[in-house]
Design a protein around this nucleic acid. Structure first.
Lengths: 214, 214, 214, 214
DNA sequence: AATGAATGAGCATTCATTCAT
DNA sequence: CATGAATGAATGCTCATTCAT
């Protein structure tokens, strides 16, 4: 017969705790930025005491790094495999991959994390480095490689492939940054998937070598 | 014997003081972000005492707002007049205006301010509002209006003009954000004017109604 | 199949546990001092969990008291019996007992405990009291009594016997304190037994009544 | 006409403040030891806010070092000059210098500082080093040099001069440590000047080469 | 008996803001 | 106007102690 007066001060959940903390920290960091985020708030949101944070993380920055790192993994893998394994012509691949990125940008929390990294990069370069090396450089590299190979095959016009890559993906990144930064203060948002579709068709004509007209 | 009622060391330039403070604050905020910026540093850089800051500004946030506000004016005016008064065809105007924006982006400290606004938007929505209303929305509006009128004239294809505007300017914004955020940690930067030139020629074919091939 | 009601990993040596804890605590307190000693370290060194400490001791101070108390017993007994049962002349006894004390001082960890008691006496007067009553006062009393009796027998010159006692033993105490405090930072240590031998022969001529020149 | 309702929150006393803080810190450190001393207490005792401490000292240890350092200067100079400039025979010098040291020991706060240094030497070796290099080693060196020269002159018996020095001064040091540590818990103190006088006359016969009987 | 996850009060340090001078 | 000494609330981090398991 269980004791009905059960109100244990805490419950032992060693396995779930780190994820819970990262999740809570993510919310607080996203809202406040790194410096303004209080460990008190993170702890409260995670439903633990401040001291408990230090059972799982060495310090505030470690928590921040865990948040940033956790936000990278789910996103990069999908794009990478999609990009590298598609056999068809370049235009088809772009029409597949850019909307996927747009989808991730539109629905995931990527925007909040980008905002955090951008805002705190001056004070925490290590963080910017992780984010750059593990996501930005890789994503840009994949896209650049795709374009280079398409140029080799004669599908894409000559020109700096890295700049072409930026031409392709920037609007989606700007759109998520806009959403996180200016929508809360009344800015009119963007329909990111629609933006992506229109952007692709705007850019492709200038990118592709004219053959049969696409 | 000098007149004792003279205090030449004081009152020296009390007119310029606020501007000097804003300038110093701009540098410190740009380097550290809002929370990590110390009034001590700002005061020292401005060559005044910490207490003097409070003669001209109510508090730290007021200084921040002044910085952000002051960073807007010099940039928007030029573009606005340039955009509204140019008579020629749309493509020419784009080839004039986008490189101008690229030039501003590449040489001014716009990137630092964008980084600040993005990073602190959660804590200072009012700031994001000012920045949005006075710069972002206006710049986007100018560009959107340009495109709309070009569509009316039959120069530009149908399609959401605001999305077209984003397609046009995003790469330059991303490039400055990249420069501020990732170059310090080893990321390879962009040649922003070259990026702009290539981007324009990549986008224009998909934007313009095919007529004489312009 | 082993009997499931056996838990050999537990209950192993519950009799020795307190002594093991005191021993571990002794090492940590000696190295760090009371405040800086962490129960985590003590527990780890004792091979038990932090919680287990509280099965045997009420709190940190209790452990400290046990350490100090346990460090007294092994040292005082030997001296006491040696001193009280020796029949010969005073000089012989001094030449026997002081080197013994020197030996204890040189080889045991008495110095570490003295350092601890001295350093924490302000915060834990009760500790200083125990240490004083059970060791210092007794040892000093034994020596003083010896001298008094030697004075009565006409072997030792008139004079305050307690001061004579201090004259006799101080150098050895100072030498161990020096060793614990200043040798780690480059101070040149003392050869304590040699110091004791020289000290005895330096002091005895001024202590003994001149008779046959002993 | 001065405002009679004068209750300024604080007064500007930049010059006196550091000394006031060191004085307050001295009292608190002496009572509690380094770790257990709270900056709150020091600040309150100094009549300033906690933040004001950081206007004059970088951190807690800096304050501690200032206390220790300030306790050294007034004591070493007097002894040094006295020792080095006295022309007479060794015995006279000892009868002059040891009581001086005893006087300093008996009346100054040397004991409290020794207690602090001994107690915290494990955690703050730098402190022990300062104290050793600036006071202990110098004082011991002066005394040792005195004895060496007296040996050269044939006034003092052969034997390790540094050990002789320890034989000479240890009782006074032990007496002040005893006073700080055990008198507060009921230990019977020593009349330090009397102890010094008796100790000198006890030691000198064994130290001096027999000539005219002293 | 034993564990170790969790707590929460405590503390050193920082820094925006105030105010006597 | 200008200063800068002084404040005090805020915050990251520690660690003795507790308690569900």
């Amino acid at each position: 017969m269980p004791n009905p007066s059960e109100h244990p001060k805490w419950r032992r959940r060693s396995k779930e705790r780190p994820a819970e903390i990262v999740s809570a920290a993510y919310a607080v960091f996203a809202e406040k930025g790194f410096s303004a985020a209080k460990l008190d708030d993170i702890a409260q949101r995670a439903g633990v005491s401040k001291g408990a944070l230090y059972l799982y993380f060495g310090n505030k920055q470690d928590i921040f790094e865990a948040v940033v790192h956790d936000a990278i993994a789910p996103n990069i893998g999908a794009i990478e495999t999609m990009a590298l394994q598609h056999p068809g012509p370049f235009a088809d691949l772009v029409r597949l991959i850019i909307p996927s990125i747009a989808q991730i940008a539109a629905t995931s929390s990527l925007g909040k994390v980008i905002k955090m990294v951008v805002g705190e990069s001056g004070n925490f370069p290590e963080l910017a480095r992780i984010w750059h090396d593990e996501l930005i450089a890789r994503a840009l590299g994949i896209l650049t490689g795709l374009i280079e190979r398409a140029q080799t095959r004669g599908e894409v016009k000559p020109g700096d492939p890295r700049n072409y890559a930026v031409s392709l993906i920037s609007p989606m990144l700007i759109a998520v940054l806009f959403r996180e930064t200016f929508e809360p203060v009344g800015g009119t948002g963007f329909d990111i998937p629609a933006l992506a579709r229109q952007h692709i068709e705007t850019v492709l004509p200038g990118l592709l070598v004219e053959s049969d007209g696409r």
